[in-house]
């Protein structure tokens, strides 16, 4: 399942993201600090990886036993929507994308 609308993926691809966790949005001029899991998730989202697979990726890279990674990911994508970095219209599917 691919959750992000193509426009959202393009938007994420336009971000300048550094390994240190500095994210610059060329469209708005805002910059952000991202933690390691966010960097990992952003990278995958840009590659249009479905969120169930992103969750698996996060579990693989990080010590994430007993953690609701799917839920956190859905929240993260919602937060991206609030920052205007992905489209948050229902068709964009950025909500309810948790792994249920």
């Amino acid at each position: 399942m691919s959750e992000l609308a193509p426009a959202s993926v393009r938007r994420l691809r336009s971000l300048a993201i550094s390994d240190a966790g500095f994210v610059f949005d060329p469209r708005t001029g805002h910059s952000y600090s991202a933690n390691a899991t966010a960097l990992c998730a952003l990278d995958a989202l840009k590659r249009d990886v479905p969120s169930s697979e992103i969750a698996a990726l996060l579990r693989e890279r990080f010590a994430a036993d007993d953690v609701e990674v799917e839920h956190d990911l859905a929240e993260f994508i919602r937060a991206l929507g609030e920052h205007g970095l992905v489209q948050s219209d229902p068709g964009g599917g950025s909500n309810g994308s948790g792994g249920n």
Partner: peptide
């Protein structure tokens, strides 16, 4: 593995 944290993006 590194400790998991919720993915988070904070505007500067």
């Amino acid at each position: 593995k590194p400790r998991y944290e919720r993915p988070s993006l904070v505007r500067n």
